[in-house]
Amino acid sequence: MTLELPSPIADVAANARLDVDGMLSPFSREAVLFADGGRHEGYAGMRALFEEAVIPVKAIFTPDTIRHEDGQVVVEGLAHGDFKGSPIRFTYRFDLDGDLIKTLEITA
């Protein structure tokens, strides 16, 4: 089953290719990503997270549900890769600003 994800969230499909530049492209330059207990600001902060925690373990997120909640787009699914506990179910909470992601919170 293929989910119909709204743009720019659908652009996060670059994760399946482990393409860091593609993963950054749907975010605003000032975006903030909350993950792994940390706050990763702007392209530099997110790039560091992707290059240190996503690419080395080939972590690929596959969404299976989507809903709108409190003004956010909430996407859930499994992430699999070369990491302990794989696969793990994650929830992604997106705040959008037009065609860009302004904040993303990832929780397990």
Rank of each mutant, 00 (worst) to 15 (best):
D21R: 11
E52A: 15
D64T: 06
F61N: 00
M1A: 11
G98R: 13
D64G: 02
K102I: 04
V32I: 15
E69F: 08
V32W: 06
F83N: 03
Y92G: 00
R93F: 02
N15M: 08
T2V: 12
G22T: 07
G77M: 10
M23A: 09
L96T: 06
A13D: 10
V20A: 11
M46Q: 14
G98W: 09
R47V: 10
T62Q: 03
G71T: 04
E76C: 07
R29G: 07
S25C: 00
S86G: 08
R39I: 11
D99T: 12
F61T: 00
E4N: 15
I60V: 15
Q72F: 12
A48E: 10
E69K: 14
V12Y: 12
G85R: 13
E69M: 09
I9H: 00
V73D: 07
G45A: 10
A13L: 10
A53N: 10
L33H: 12
A10V: 13
L96S: 03
E30V: 05
A44F: 02
V32Y: 05
F61Q: 00
P6Q: 04
D95W: 14
A79N: 04
L100R: 15
H68G: 05
A16I: 01
G42H: 06
I88G: 01
E51P: 01
I101N: 09
V54Q: 01
F90V: 02
T103Y: 14
H80Q: 14
R67A: 13
I106L: 12
V20H: 11
E30I: 06
Y92H: 07
T103I: 12
T62C: 03
I55Q: 04
V32F: 04
G37K: 12
M23L: 11
K84W: 02
K58E: 15
Y43K: 07
L5K: 05
D70A: 15
G37W: 08
E69W: 07
I66L: 15
L100V: 09
E105S: 11
I55F: 07
V73R: 13
T103D: 11
A14H: 02
R17P: 00
M46K: 09
Y92C: 08
T65R: 15
D99M: 05
A31S: 08
S25E: 14
